[in-house]
Design a protein around this nucleic acid. Structure first.
Length: 293
DNA sequence: GGAAGTCAAGTCTCG
DNA sequence: CGAGACTTGACTTCC
């Protein structure tokens, strides 16, 4: 098997730790924000140490690791105030061959026709890139984004997305990777945007199942893996199972080992890759899965 | 201390 | 055209 690394997102259920502690906008104060940042960094370190014990070398950092990290309410120069902690966490990750990432949510939309929304999306990406930079991690440590809305004209939206990418500072652009989604953008769409932007493509199995688009899956995977170059690190994929009886696209608590094996076999045909497990049960689901491999 | 209500943000669908 | 879903946890308020 060519699998290199496995990991999960944001929260460790086994240790009860999270990188996502935050507050509401109303209650945000510099003191409150500093305390939350400190807590999130402490728990991030603890999670990485826990992950190392299990051999999990992939981890997604929660987008509120710095609460309101791209919002004007947060004026803290956290990259300076917490420089020592950040450097130390980053060194731990590097020394242990770990790969960290961000995945901004549904509100980060680079394809929007509204320049203000694009500006806010860029701010979110800039904050995420600054965090990974403050850890001292290179461009193999990625920020995964979706292509956003279609606004009734998908080609036009893809053009706006590509134009915005072209205008980004290189230190932001080099971190970005694009993912196929469950309703609008298929892997083939992501590949088309990748040809224009040179951004690598993350393949998500569950999104593919609900929104496969055109093309043979094996051919698509070959093209998707080829979008990753040495400077980007190994190709990344997202794996999850559909929650039974739930809406299409809803992540299940755990994952089906047989389905996992089938996808891993599929991906392995195209070379090494890193796998992010997206399950409600987080590291608990990963542990259960590995028991059954 | 537990339960219920609320939360920065965008897009899309439905009524 | 406005409300709610999406997806989701965690914070905040209320009792």
């Amino acid at each position: 098997m060519s699998l290199q690394r496995r990991g999960y997102a944001c929260i460790s259920l086994l240790t009860g730790r999270s990188t996502n502690h935050t507050c509401t906008l109303r209650t945000a104060s510099p003191e409150r924000l500093r305390a939350l940042i400190q807590q999130n960094l402490d728990e991030l370190r603890a999670i990485l140490e826990h992950n190392l014990e299990h051999g999990w070398r992939l981890f997604r950092i929660g987008s509120s690791v710095i609460p309101f990290g791209s919002h004007p309410v947060n004026q803290i120069a956290w990259w300076r105030e917490f420089e020592r902690e950040l450097q130390s966490i980053g060194a731990f990750a590097r020394e242990n061959g770990m790969r960290l990432s961000f995945h901004p949510g549904q509100y980060t939309v680079l394809s929007s026709p509204d320049p203000l929304i694009v500006e806010r999306a860029v701010a979110e990406i800039a904050y995420s890139a600054r965090f990974l930079g403050a850890l001292g991690l290179d461009a193999r440590h990625k920020i995964v984004i979706h292509l956003g809305g279609t606004y009734g004209d998908k080609p036009a939206a893809m053009n706006r997305f590509s134009d915005t990418i072209a205008r980004l500072a290189p230190e932001l652009r080099q971190r970005l990777v694009i993912e196929n989604d469950e309703r609008s953008y298929t892997p083939a769409d992501a590949l088309a945007v990748s040809r224009r932007t040179k951004l690598p493509v993350v393949f998500d199995n569950l999104h593919y199942i609900s929104n496969p688009g055109e093309g043979d899956v094996d051919e698509l995977l070959g093209d998707v893996f080829a979008t990753w170059h040495t400077r980007d690190g190994a190709p990344k994929v997202h794996f999850s199972s559909q929650a039974a009886g739930s809406r299409i696209g809803h992540h299940s608590a755990d994952v089906d080992p047989a389905e996992f094996k089938a996808w891993v076999e599929c991906w392995s045909a195209h070379g090494d890759f890193d796998l992010m497990l997206e399950a409600k049960n987080k590291d608990l689901a990963l542990l259960e899965l590995e028991k059954n491999l």
